[in-house]
Design a protein around this nucleic acid. Sequence first.
DNA 1: TGAGAGTTTTTTTTT
DNA 2: AAAACTCTCA
Length: 766
Amino acid sequence: MAKADLSAIQREAVQCIDQPVLIFAGAGSGKTKVLTHKIAYLRNEVGIPDDNILAVTFTNKAAREMSQRVVKLIDATASDSRYKAGPIWSPMLHSNGAVQVGTFHSICARILRKEIHHLGYKNDFVIYDADDQLRLLKMVLEQNEYDLDLHPPQHYRSVISRAKNGMKGPVDLATKAKGEEADIFTKYQEALKNSHAVDFDDLLLLPLDLFNNHPKILNRYRKTFQYILVDEYQDTNRAQFEFVKLLAQKHRHICVVGDDDQSIYSWRGADITNILNFEKEFPDAEVFKLEQNYRSTAIILDAAHAVVERNQNRADKKLWTERKGGEAIQIYALENEREEAEQIFNLIQEEVLSNKRRFGDIVILYRTNAQSRAIEDILRRRTIAYKIIGGIKFYERKEVKDAMAYLRLLVNPSDPVSLERIINFPPRAIGETSMNRLRTFAHERKIDLFKSLGSGLEAGIQVKQAGAMKDFKAMIKRYQGLALNKDRGSPAGPVDEYSGMESSSSSHNFGVDEVVTAFLEEAGLIAHFRNQETTEAHDRLENIKELINSIEEFHIENPGSTIRDFLEDVALLSDVDRWADDTNAVTLMTLHSAKGLEFPVVFLTGLEEGLFPLIRMNDDENDEEEERRLFYVGLTRTQDKAYITYAKQRRKWGSNTLETVMSRFIRELPDNLVEWKPLTSKEASKNGSRISSGDSRVYPKVGHPAPVVQGILDDFVIGAWVEHKLFGKGRIMGREGVADSLKLTVEFEGNKTKKLVAKYANLHRL
DNA sequence: TGAGAGTTTTTTTTT
DNA sequence: AAAACTCTCA
């Protein structure tokens, strides 16, 4: 029985279900285990139906993992076959009869998809990301004749977002002589609503409006979500707290798990008092503390504790482990960020060659995304397979966003941000002058921009331009029919339209990818890039193709899904969510992204005052305690061995090199747990690539071109067999480019040959 | 109107 | 150093 491997305290926490439960769960103390076992327990032992359970995680990846683990558990523990689990999680919004697992944002999006019409939005609303928000704000400011230089959109975005995070409306701003901010906030919010768009903060706030104004709906969801579990509770904000409170107030079957030492999102509005005051809100709460760590060595835990202990604002506690001792934390001081990267490379080599690690066992963590570049450079040059999480994101690239704007317009033509983005891209002779006239026209008549596209002449626009507008509108309408009707024509709900019915394949003369390709082709976007000879244009075209591939893939994975579902998926999935951790490659990510993950070998880089802890010059509220918690989170990702590096000089923005000072966090580490490694990589390479001072073995010189050492290259060598989710099994026939731009030519079964960008293709080595 | 040259800004972390 | 933004000229 799977329950046997729970500790006594874990079991108690699992079985306590009739009252509010607060679980303080330190790093690596098995909190996910408790949550998954609790779900299995509720289901199999207590007999709670699946859809009455709601589990909230911090990332979608965590949601996916959790549901996979629950399925395993359930199947293992269920003696009775009627308790066997089906697929209990799906990224799709309309999966009923299953445990709902997801992030606050995705769960709220699911609710809004069904209910938002009660608030006067179309259920086809779009989700605006930061860039879209900025564009909308800019439009609002211009429309209301604010001078953009005096009123930078950036500023108002952060003001509005901060207000929303604290659940404040325009009214709350107006009171403190911030009339303009309140005015802009109000107008921005109106514009969002008219555009049938919601921003990320609205995703959390609108369900609250819904619940507060429609008690019947609230009651319905209260009945549905009988048992609520929340992971990473220390990083919830006001709105999320209210959401949980509203739903759980009545039945009080609420279980939250968190660790105040790991609260690292206060800048996003996360409110640590949510966890510290849980007992105030739910006085009958039972509190459990999980203090045994199953992940790290004692050395790692002691070091992490020694640092975080200095925080004033924390509940006193200490993790313990049965893994006594361990390897000392190695600290390296390097000359500059290049040497730092070089040293990291040397150490990776050593770990892989002499300590038998896999590349996939290793993670490199840094405070800011910009730091990844130097490290990336070296790893690429040395042909070490690596994966970067975050940074320049695929779906944020201009050409990809452009293509998506076209798709968004199909779903929701009222979206002015998307319309403005592409009305003249690729150029179709509709310039600023014409658009200004159209905007004025639409504004006066109070119709949306898209509708007014047909009335160009009336708006006083030149014949040629007015014609171009009309054509554009007609094209969108045409593809609306093609792309959306086809999807709508399939049965509602998670019914498999590809379930082998012969008729369906014959009625589907083309796949989604072909419709989308045709659309983007006719829109001129594809031709625009194809007609340019530059490599840049070529890359952009590849990215658009990759986007189309992923649409097709999504559609096959989620039968019956619409383009709308795809767009939502893209809007809500984080980079960590997309991270395929089964490829054998070194992982690079920010400390924030690493939350919840663990690795045998961890590199903490850039330990310099001002960088980590990060200090922002023009911001007085530098939260040292939060930075320290971040260090704690980073170090406690380690299972076996941690390396800490810093550079004595670091370059900022290309040119000026700054002298740095070693981070206070290094000084805070107890001497007996660390080992200083003064040897720089320069000296090391002088010795003909010996790897470290304490190691007299001589390794083959690794330079350029790299000697072929088995396993040193990534998984995708020529001749290797791989599997693609969509195309099936195939063999790698060619490679070009390296790292992020590595492209593979793969011959799939059935003689289909495809060229794929390795980074996004999600290939699995067979 | 659109392409290309020249100029400015960016870097905190993310759902 | 790179991307985003502005300006200029055809």
